[in-house]
Design a protein around this nucleic acid. Structure first.
Length: 488
RNA sequence: GGCCCCUUCGUCUAUCGGUUAGGACAAAAGAUUCUCAAUCUUUAAAGAGGGGUUCGACUCCCCUAGGGGCUACCA
């Protein structure tokens, strides 16, 4: 039987790490088994829905490099793939359930429910959740009340006794006492919209989903879904509840832990390869002895048996390491393309994508490749190549254990030596500077530090000789002269 | 509170009854070095606790503790 899995996000926020992890595992499972990966929009919550989140969804997954075999944008044999376009089906199915005796109309209004909850909170009753007040209204009476226009929801009948058992691909056999299942959850809201539970079960069945992989926070509603499948007389899909992703403090990953939406990672200059590689390892392993896996390899190697049961803590440092690894794998041209949007956005590089500047920047990529942890670091690192750096305060020019006069002397010596160097030949230039340092009785570092600060504006910079080669002799000498004036 | 899931270095993980419990990130030390990086070498670091089962348990079972999740006309 062909595997059919789905990622079914609710467009009520930007795509975040948790969602991407669920999507990725479903995606990898489909690819590794030769099955189908389906995207379905669960837009049944009108109060939190926003169009921009749908755009963000497509944008995010396009960036990550996922593709789906069926979905709202590309269609497929089980469409439509947007739940708001399937409303008639849910209503019809809810009514079918009533006819079959698996569900009932409930006329309790907000008021009564609120009072009931208040009483429960005070501890007057042991029961939690809906008190099944309307469960035993005769079907004919309920139908009449609905026909007369009275507002009603449809609730699922959870058996009062017995238990519900199911098998979880990861967790194994699970048995749940029916009395511990959420008592008679709402399937169809009074406005006619379905709840997640109804829409999810109906669509999974209609779309012939074979495996439901979702976060473990859904586990408590699994027995209720199983009861619904049984009430419909349907064969349920196999369930697989994935471990949760937590923040450093062990609580559910959220804003206060740092970036969580893919947008944020993207803006900060993370590569999709790094994000995918890292997220793929949250609660799952592949082969031993390797850390870097291209998506194509993950697609081949993914095995449900290698998923962990325990929740995983999100480690930004390890993700950062992955990012550095993938940045270092890029060619000059690739890296330049990746860095360009960040350069342009910084405002320091107006016209950087024009041919002249572009050539310079591409030539500068070898100088920063090993220094970049994030693409967004690039503007600060490369600014001095395009703009005149602000002249540093005098103290910056003075090497440790030396004084201002000595630093000035170093700078003069460097300025005198520079025109004699072939900047295109870095090793040769370095030899010249080394012997000059020796002549001055200084370390090479002491000779280069004032020069570095003069040329790049900072004590920390990409390699100096290579930088000067890119800048050209004239600009270097100008900067040295300006620095010399500051030094006095 | 009730119900459920989980438990190997700080973190992500390997181990599928017999290992000096391995790797990666982070940390520390060193090498290299024009700064910063990168790279290389090395070090430190773990089976929550208690009972069983077994010739032998990280591995299987039970209890306890701890962590997490759910407990909506949200998903």
């Amino acid at each position: 039987m062909e595997v059919r899995v789905r990622y079914a996000p609710s467009p009520t926020g930007n795509q975040h790490i948790g969602g991407v992890r669920t999507a990725l595992f479903n995606y990898l499972f489909a690819r590794s088994t030769g099955g189908k990966f389906i995207l379905r929009l669960e837009d049944t919550d009108r109060s939190r829905y926003a169009e921009e989140y749908v755009g963000n969804l497509y944008d995010t997954f396009k960036w990550l490099g996922f593709y789906w075999d069926e979905g709202p944008d590309i269609g497929g044999p089980s469409g439509p793939y947007i739940q708001s376009e399937r409303f008639d089906s849910y209503r019809e199915h809810a009514k079918r359930l009533i006819a079959a005796g698996g569900a009932y109309y409930c006329f309790c209004d907000e008021d009564r429910l609120a009072k009931m909850r208040a009483a429960q909170a005070e501890g007057k009753t042991e029961e939690q959740g809906y008190d099944r007040h309307c469960r035993n209204i005769p079907a004919a009476e309920a139908a009449a009340r609905v026909a007369s226009g009275e507002k009603a929801v449809i609730r699922l009948k959870i058996p009062l006794e017995g238990s519900t058992a199911f098998h979880d691909l990861l967790l194994g056999d699970i048995e749940w006492k029916n009395e511990d299942v959420s008592p008679d959850p709402v399937l169809l809201k009074s406005d006619g919209f379905p709840t997640y539970h109804l829409a999810n079960v109906v669509d999974d069945h209609l779309m012939r989903i074979t495996h439901v992989m979702r976060a473990q926070e859904w586990l408590p509603s699994a027995p209720m879904h199983m009861i619904m499948y049984a009430a419909f007389g349907w064969e349920p899909p196999l369930l697989c509840h994935l471990p949760m992703v937590l923040g450093q403090d062990g609580h559910k990953l959220s804003k206060r832990h740092g970036a969580t939406s893919v947008n944020e990672f993207r803006k900060a200059g993370y590569l999709p390869e790094a994000l995918i590689n890292y997220v793929a390892h949250l609660g799952c392993s592949y082969e031993d002895g390797r850390d870097l896996f291209p998506l194509a390899d993950l697609e081949k190697l993914f095995r449900v048996e290698r998923i962990n049961k325990a929740p995983a803590i999100f480690d930004y440092q390890k993700l950062e390491w992955y990012n550095g690894q993938y940045i270092r794998q890029k060619s000059d041209k690739e890296l330049c393309d990746l860095v360009m949007p960040h350069l342009l956005e910084s405002g320091l590089f107006a016209g950087a994508d024009g041919p002249g500047v572009r050539t310079l920047l591409e030539a500068a990529m070898p100088l920063v490749r090993e220094r970049l942890h994030f693409l967004a670091d690039a503007p600060a690192m490369l600014g001095y190549l395009i703009q005149e750096p602000p002249t540093a305060p005098p103290g910056e020019f003075i090497p440790k254990k030396l004084d201002a006069a000595r630093a000035a002397a170093m700078l003069d010596a460097a300025a005198a030596l520079l025109p004699k160097c072939d900047l295109g030949d870095v090793p040769a230039a370095e030899i010249l500077f080394r012997s000059e340092a020796e002549r001055l009785g200084a370390k090479l570092g002491d000779l280069l530090l004032p020069l570095r600060v003069a040329v790049t504006g900072s004590r920390v910079s990409p390699p100096l000789f290579e930088s000067m080669a890119l800048l050209g002799l004239r600009r270097c000498l100008e900067r040295i002269a300006r620095a010399r004036a500051v030094l006095g």
